[in-house]
Design a protein around this nucleic acid. Structure first.
Lengths: 338, 338
DNA sequence: TTGAAAGCGCTAACAA
DNA sequence: TTGTTAGCGCTTTCAA
């Protein structure tokens, strides 16, 4: 870093702008905060002065004087952050950051250590933060729910069980049903599913969606094998499906990673996709396109989720009332696997 | 959020603690800031009062009064954030956050839009931030380097070309050479490499490491095919290697994802790993263990990188002098592919 | 519509 | 070793 030699002026303050524009600090403050009652000529002069001295408001002073924090916190439970490659996390953060960029709120992040939650609690409740977002990999994790009583909080994903908190999610069940219908409409009749863990909402909702579509078509909805959302578990589940002796000509897989696992098994047995068995995935992550033939899947708009979470949080902070649950629409991406 | 009904007291202030402990605010401030010159009995009394009223310092006030910002910013170039599944990013953030958790600095994040960089610039230079970290996927991206003249900055990864900035990285070349030696020591003699893009430092350095090891063993170092670090590109490169007619009994692949791609080709040709061809990867990410047989690879300590970056940044902020380049050690993870 | 003045909660000389 | 005092840079009544 360069030394702060000689005459390098201090960071410009409101005061300096006021002096240059020939008005009071209060007026400058009003201009900066877009208070309508300012004479347009004066406002223009002030804005010019702001540009001239290259003024940026001091956030700490602003927050102190206005008695309201200007940052929101993203809480990442330590367990989540341990999941090494977590595209979900990165994309939610991206969406959140993109939304907040257009507001006056700054985004800060904490890793919430399960060991000493008081630290995080104190930080959040100490009046330093306007609200918080929780991105937990296990969408069932609600250890922070109780803080909703004190500051605005928004969660990613439907909670397991009842909850009075705000959250945004996709309609996993409806999307899964839609994906299954693609299989059905392609003429497949022996359709199985590789489901996710039944202790997290996406795992539960996605099989249910499959069941709904199967039932409405009058097809057998008993062919389900479970995985844990990893590639390896998808391969194992596919092996079990194939080993059962019953025919399979279509599979709805609860996420793309497991679908990629299923691909390996299908292909090592010489089964063609989609001719012999059609596959539909869920998430539309990097696995969907890195696989051959490319996977038809449900697009999970993670960045949008992040944006929506931030939007709802800001609304909450500003006292607007909003719905507790927000579902963002998914879409089906038709590629080559059906 | 619960209503702020009736007698709910305001956030406790220094003043309240002082009153309760029967001392001046200055003394409380000293205790909070661990100033040594405080009488231990008084300090104890103060600490008790702090607990009693559940006091948390107001960060804005602190920052304002001390005239120094208490947050550091993580800059994520928009192009990086577009990389959907970026485990690298998530892990660096994790390391950074873990380190900062034990300091008084708060971590905030901005997505730096390439469209309007002035916004980010203004934020960073407005005196609101003590320092910044840059995590760019393309380690060559140095569009923020010039800010180093004004605030402390630390980058992830060796820059392309010269640079006067601070950065932390692994010694890609040495690590690649080490990985290649494992292949050599296992008795392989026809060793190829699948290299990464030659416009980013890791791509360059890793082939060079391979060359070093090959040369020192007196082996032919001409068998190189290039990929772009994706799984698909690794598969293609492997296909080219196999199609060349020359024998291959070992491959050093510049990252695990491409190694996974190479696996698929090897296995579809009926070649056994490691019996027919041994493979060593680089990164030790989730691909390394999701593949069968599990991949022997170089462990890239990303979280450690994040921690180190934060550590160096804090040192810089506090005026300690530190080395411009910091290399963190890698290790070889021996699994089943050699 | 504008300005004067009183703080926001804290730190940091300076004095005692 | 402790307290007094004067701000940090801004917002926000209140009066004009």
């Amino acid at each position: 870093m360069k030394q702060d030699t000689s005459g390098s002026r201090p960071t410009p303050t409101l005061e300096m702008v006021a002096a240059l524009a020939g008005v009071s600090r209060a007026t400058v403050s009003r201009v900066v905060n877009d208070v309508p009652s300012v004479d347009e000529d004066i406002a223009a002069k002030v804005r010019q002065a702001i540009l001239a001295v290259n003024y940026t408001p001091n956030r700490a002073a602003r927050s102190l004087a206005s008695r309201r924090p200007n940052s929101v916190t993203l809480i990442v439970p330590e367990s989540t952050s341990k999941v090494f490659a977590d595209p979900f996390f990165a994309s939610v953060v991206q969406g959140v950051a993109l939304y907040l960029a257009d507001t006056d709120y700054t985004l800060n992040m904490v890793i919430a250590s399960e060991a000493k939650p008081e630290k995080t609690r104190a930080f959040l409740l100490g009046g330093n933060v306007a609200g918080a977002l929780v991105v937990s990999h296990h969408a069932g994790d609600r250890s922070w729910t109780h803080l909703s009583d004190y500051i605005p909080m928004v969660f990613a994903g439907r909670p397991l069980g009842e909850s009075a908190s705000y959250y945004v999610d996709v309609d996993n069940e409806a999307a899964a049903a839609g994906a299954t219908r693609v299989l059905i409409e392609s003429g497949r009749t022996n359709i199985a599913t590789i489901a996710g863990p039944q202790d997290m909402p996406p795992g539960i909702d996605r099989v249910n969606g499959w069941r709904v579509a199967m039932a409405e078509a009058g097809l057998d909805d008993s062919r389900v094998e479970y995985g844990d959302f990893t590639l390896a578990s998808g391969a194992k589940a596919m092996r079990r499906l194939l080993g059962s002796g019953k025919p399979v000509d279509g599979v709805f897989v609860a996420n793309d990673q497991m679908a990629a696992g299923a691909y390996t098994v299908l292909q090592e047995r010489g089964l063609r996709i989609p001719e012999d068995v059609a596959v539909v995935g869920f998430d539309d992550d990097s696995f969907a396109t890195s696989v051959n033939p490319q996977l038809t899947t449900v697009h999970h708009p993670i960045i949008e989720m992040g944006k929506k979470m931030a939007e709802i949080l800001v609304d909450l902070i500003e006292g607007k009332d909003t719905a507790r649950v927000t579902q963002i629409p998914t879409s089906l991406v038709i590629r080559e696997s059906v």
